[in-house]
Every structure is written in structure tokens, then in C-alpha cells.
Design a binder for these strands. Sequence first.
DNA 1: GGGAGATGATTAACATGTTAAGTGTTTGCC
DNA 2: GGCAAACACTTAACATGTTAATCATCTCCC
Lengths: 151, 151
Amino acid sequence: MREFSRSLPMSLLRAREAVMRQFRPSLRNHGLTEQQWRILRALTAVEAIEVTELARMAFLLGPSLSRILRDLEARQLVERKTAVVDQRRAVVSISAKGLKLIEAVAPTSEAIYAEITRRFGARRLSELQEMLVVLEQSLADMAGADSDDGE
Amino acid sequence: MREFSRSLPMSLLRAREAVMRQFRPSLRNHGLTEQQWRILRALTAVEAIEVTELARMAFLLGPSLSRILRDLEARQLVERKTAVVDQRRAVVSISAKGLKLIEAVAPTSEAIYAEITRRFGARRLSELQEMLVVLEQSLADMAGADSDDGE
DNA sequence: GGGAGATGATTAACATGTTAAGTGTTTGCC
DNA sequence: GGCAAACACTTAACATGTTAATCATCTCCC
């Protein structure tokens, strides 16, 4: 079998961890986890958004998002209301307080990102991002290998 | 601020998830989680190994590894004994039963990996892995951006 | 217009990620 | 040789990942 440390999932995991390690302390100083930050960050790009669509944008599973929204709402960083046309749907938006928090975190975040870009190289970074997109697309319609053995 | 969906952490997360989505069903059919598989897989490369070193190999934090080892030991997939020279250290190795399980999973796993390689391209895959290593190394000695604000 | 099935969201249950604290052992040094 | 600091590992506590089940609403079709 392929040498373990060279497997693609491990490489991606390690690279991502190396990157996130840079951001976590700053987020923590503002009382935010990585996922909470992703949600607030996604919300700044829209006026309001339904929960399912937000999950897609922030790349979180429904249950995780549900829990985090409950907390963010309690902290008054986001607002939630039920859609009028369909009572099942909830529409979420960032609050003024949430925006303020984003603005407080952003400078440090940007500085870290800039330093990562400087170290790794801007061109190289673009190439990497492009490859990652292609990888994702390559596997988009792959079966799922379910019928492995006795199921 | 940079468009959210193009941030490096998100790109890495999405790519990794696209890859892991392929493997999870098969692992699940064998009663293994991704992390349990990583541990068993790492153990096949060595005779025996200390817990801390295993954590480094499988890229798991100590607490996660502790919990998982407890479970794998209960299922008799791994064996653990205390080092004679240093009572603090525990030495872990894979059991015959564990090896058998690995051998049962490996074919499907290899087939999936081969299909991923075929779709993405072998050369491209090598390039990607190389870039990920460089990225990791680029950030290896980066500060940690701790002194963000009032600390 | 009413009921079966689909859909959006949440809850439940268990596994892991993450940081801090705790436990037992060893090491270095006086 | 004994004690403070370092070390290896585990536990604790809370947040998230993951899958399945539940709940409420809605849609479609008869």
C-alpha cells in the first residue's frame, strides 16, 4: 500500500491545519471559533439567507449549523426570522453587533492571510487554489463506493 | 475582504471533504471511522510505537488518540503495553485481528484511490502533493499571531 | 380537501477536535 | 537522596462532525 504519510487526505489535512493554526489564536481572542467565523463571514456577503443555503456557503452540515446559529443568535450576533411564504424556512442575517465584531477581527485576519501569501507566493497560491477546485470537480460525480461488502 | 469561498482554508476543506466522501462509506462498512483507520494504517508501518509518536504519525491530538486507542484496544485491534525503561510511556502495536481488518479494507481503499488518481491525473496529483508540502513548510515557523488585542 | 410523500430544519447519539487541567513518572540538580 | 521541573499520557469540558431520526410544513395528486 501507498506510504501512509503521502496519502492525499493526509496531505490536505496537514496543509489545512498548518494554515488554520495561524488564524485560530486571533479568532479565539475575539471569542470565535473557526466555524462561527465562517458563518459570520458568509453572512456579510448577503442581505439575508436561508439556513440550508447558508450551510452550503459556509460548508457546514445542518446539525452543526443549527447548534451554532442557536448560540450566535443568543449572543445577538445574528438575527433569524421565519420566511413568510414558507413557514418551514428560516432566514438569517448578520446583526449590527455581528458586523462590528467582523470589523474588529478582519484586520488581523487580513494581515495573517497576507503573510501566508507572502511566504508561499501569490502565484503559487493561485495555482494551488485552482488545482483544488479541479480536484473537487473531478470527484463531484464519483459513485461513493458503497457496495463494498456485506451491506 | 477576499471573497469568502476563495479563502485558502475553505478550498482545502472542500477538497479534502470531496476526497474523504469517497472513502467513508467503505470504512463504515467495516466499522471504522476515518481516524481509527489512520491509526491502524500507521501501525502497519512499524513494529511498535509510542503513543506520542503515533499521534504525530496519524496527525491526531493526544486526547483524541487516547480515546480511540481505548476503543481499539477494547476491540482487540491493537495491543498496548508499558515501556520497561520508562513507565510513563506506552507502546502500541497492531494485533493479528487488526491486520486482518486492514487487509479486508485495503482492496476497496486502493481501488478508490486509483479511481481518484485516474480522474485527477497522476502527474497533477504529484504536483498537488508537492505544493501542499511546500505550503506546510512555508508556515512551519510562522509566529501564531497571538498578541492580537488585549491579552 | 385531504392524505401520502417531499422538504426544511432541528434534535439525538456518538465520535472527534481543541484547550486546559490532572496523574503518575522521570530527570536534573543541589 | 530528595525535590522542583519536565515529561508522557489521560481526563475533563465544551464545540463540531457525522449519520439517523424526528417534527413541522408544504406539495402534489386523487
